[in-house]
Design a protein around this nucleic acid. Structure first.
Length: 567
RNA sequence: CGGGGUGUAGCGCAGUCUGGUAGCGCACCAGUUUUGGGUACUGGUGGUCGGAGGUUCGAAUCCUCUCACCCCGACCA
């Protein structure tokens, strides 16, 4: 492709609405433009990258035995009502009516559609296992889209659904997808981790996320330094610490803490470390208030709490509810003498805590020298907090290290949740009707593009992994007024194109600096610079994007050299 | 939805406080120049100042309403 023909409007300045580096570089490099919040145009360079990613995904999915289909983006409400999710999904599901007043939605995911498809035509155990996938635009009306392609409202996703006769077979399907995902993300040039994950709204019992390690990632994960265990902090199980309560502390006292509400404020004011605090959170679980205690330096994991209470929704209580339950303004709640809640639940780390600091259930006051068991009692202890750097590994006892991650893929073992709700049954060998056992598997295609940039860039621009770069080589004739330079560039361009390579020829009448800058911004893996000086000696200059060295390469055998560099 | 912020040319911004009929840089077009790290100069195209209503002789500027977008939080691929 010639740069004079390529529609890739590059910008010198960073658009002010782009915060994360992938968003900035995609806009500056002429890859994407924004149409509305979380909704983007994909320009030719981006489309090429997406094609590359899609091709890798298709190859690996096909190889794993899955078959590609294409399902409708517009879906009738009936199937969502059947699965129960029309009521449950909430405002993230973009709903609409057709001219006759019928309810429809834009698909945020396709369990309902695929189950409807399979249940109609698959009746026999002989047809299983079956794994169908598609690459398609999804729509989720996010509360807050952000970070460019990282969290869009409209995005491209590969979703796959497996159907099996029983749990063992379904687990084999899950394992096959898990292995395919490892190959896919590796081929995309990503540094990633599969981590154990919560099953969330989709439901099910077994789940892994594939997290690309990046400081800008939205997800927090922990990974064991000793063994292979890795998990989302929401999921990571934390064992109860050995219960050595120790000797009783001094008697309880009440101290004034004027206008000091947060742990950090009170900790600084009383000069007591945060891990000697008990944080008392008043939570609303399906309309019932509970007090939840976690150590001052820990954070409540609402997912674990919701599971413990078997609640559909768990959230921090409104200010007025807190005042009614504790008799004090927000910031001064504590477990001592607390009666305004259904129960007091505590994280394991609160068990046996001595000489602690808690809110006094009165404005501007805290209790100090508080002992759990002596000064307050807990109705039940459980694992309720988010894992943090330094926690013990639940598998081997080693130390967990914290990372930030971008979730590019997620695999779920669904079981029979959808197949039972929607009567997706088959006849087994003895003629009995049974629900199919399902799994579902997603990959954020557009998110991979952003994640790859988050992980591979420098101050000049994108440094594409080889496997997904829009073009493999950029040719820069540095002096457009010199016929020999232009001629050599054209000749090399023709040779490389003939050799089947993806080449960008910068035939614009720009000065060398502008060409270097744009080539680095766009991020092609290889760059060939052609100048009059080198040509006299029969050489051109080769630079690997992301590397330091500029190599002088003879014109003779250049094509073979380039080809070998791209291996 | 709560908190904070921004809307003036494709991009980045000034002008708003103190009303007088819109400007700068980049990009784009024409020409000259330059040609190994965003060359220089000249000329030029392009704007219902987010929208509606109001105040006023006169509104980008003041008032009211509204919309969009960004960031933080609660939600999720």
């Amino acid at each position: 492709m010639r740069m004079t023909r390529l529609h890739a409007p590059t910008l010198r300045e960073t658009p002010k609405d782009a915060e994360v580096v992938s968003h900035q570089l995609l806009v500056r490099g002429g890859y994407i433009r924004k149409l509305a919040a979380g909704i983007y145009d994909f320009l030719p360079l981006a489309q090429r990258v997406l094609h590359k990613i899609n091709r890798i995904v298709r190859e690996e999915m096909d190889r794993a035995g899955a078959q590609e289909v294409l399902l409708p983006a517009v879906q009738p409400a009936e199937i969502w009502q059947e699965s129960g999710r029309w009521a449950k999904y909430g405002p993230e599901l973009l709903r609409m009516k057709d001219r006759k007043g019928g309810d429809f939605c834009l698909g945020p995911t396709h369990e309902e559609v695929i189950v409807d498809l399979v249940r109609r035509d698959v009746r026999s155990w002989r047809a299983l296992p079956l794994n169908l996938y598609q690459i398609q635009t999804k729509f989720r009306d996010e509360i807050r889209p952000r970070a460019g392609l990282m969290r869009g409202r409209e995005f491209i996703m590969k979703d796959a659904y497996s159907f099996d006769t029983d749990e063992d077979a379904a687990n084999a399907s899950y394992d096959a997808m898990f292995a395919a995902y490892q190959r896919i993300f590796a081929r995309c040039g990503l540094d990633f981790r599969p981590v154990e994950a919560d099953t969330g709204a989709i439901g099910g019992s077994r789940s892994h996320e594939f997290q690309v390690l990046a400081d800008s990632g939205e997800d927090a994960i922990v990974s064991c330094l000793e063994c292979h265990y890795a998990a989302n902090v929401e999921q990571a199980e934390l064992d109860a610490p050995a219960g050595d309560a120790g000797a009783a502390g001094p008697p309880l006292e009440t101290v004034p803490t004027p206008d000091k509400r947060t742990i950090a404020e009170v900790s600084g004011f009383l000069e007591v470390a945060a891990d000697r605090f008990v944080k008392t959170l008043i939570v609303d679980a399906d309309g019932t208030l509970h007090a939840v205690l976690v150590r001052g330096d820990h954070e409540l994991n609402e997912i674990k709490l919701a599971k413990l209470l078997d609640a559909d929704t768990v959230h921090l209580a409104e200010d007025a509810q807190v005042v009614a339950a504790t008799g004090a303004p927000v910031g001064f709640a504590g477990p001592v003498g607390l009666t305004g809640v259904e129960s007091i639940i505590a994280d394991h780390a609160v068990r046996g805590l001595r000489d602690a600091v808690v809110g006094a259930n009165a404005a501007d006051a805290h209790h100090v020298h508080v002992d759990e068991g002596r000064d307050f009692t807990v109705d039940r202890f459980a694992d309720l907090r988010l894992a943090v750097d330094g926690d013990a590994c639940p598998r081997c006892g080693g130390r967990l290290k914290g990372y930030r991650g971008i979730e590019v893929g997620h695999v779920f073992f669904l079981g029979t949740r959808y197949s039972e709700a929607m009567r997706c049954n088959y006849l087994d060998e003895s003629g009995r009707e049974k629900p199919m056992v399902m799994g579902c598997y997603g990959i954020g295609i557009t998110r991979i593009m952003a994640a790859a940039i988050e992980q591979n860039h420098d101050d000049k621009g994108i440094v594409w992994p080889r496997g997904i770069a829009p073009y493999q080589v950029a040719i820069l004739p540095l002096q457009m007024n010199k016929a020999d330079v232009v001629g050599a560039a054209e000749k090399i361009y023709a040779q490389l194109v003939d050799a089947g390579l993806e080449v960008l020829l910068d035939d614009r009448n720009e000065r060398a600096g502008a060409k270097f800058a744009d080539a680095e911004l766009i991020g092609t893996p290889l760059r060939i610079a052609i100048g009059g000086r080198g040509l006299k000696n029969g050489i051109v200059e080769l630079k690997v994007r992301g590397g330091e060295a500029v190599e002088k390469i003879p014109l003779d055998g250049l094509v073979d050299e380039i080809r070998s560099r791209l291996q």
